[in-house]
Amino acid sequence: MIPFLIIATLLSLLAAAVMAIYSRDPAHSVLSYMGFGLGSTVLYLLFSAPDVALTEAVIGAGVGALVFVVALLQTQNKEQP
């Protein structure tokens, strides 16, 4: 069961990473990035590292995404003054 879950999580991580790179709308990229963070949280949990998982959930999916969202808003403001 666990190996299967690990492989499934890895595949979804791959999908999220590819989507983050290739999606046209930057907002979708940020969303995929957040998905990537959540996926890696699950992966760390599966590898029984709850400390790392907690850090990844808070920093990777939370603060990291916030920085991207802010950057996105700033650049959009620039485009339409």
């Binding site: 400390d51 907690l54 850090t55 808070v58 920093i59 603060v63 916030l66």
Partner: peptide, 17 residues
């Protein structure tokens, strides 16, 4: 339990956010 200074600190900061 799992957690600690880094994680808890970021959680507190998220309240301010």
């Amino acid at each position: 339990s799992p957690g600690g200074g880094f994680q808890g600190g970021v959680i507190i900061a998220s309240a301010f956010v």
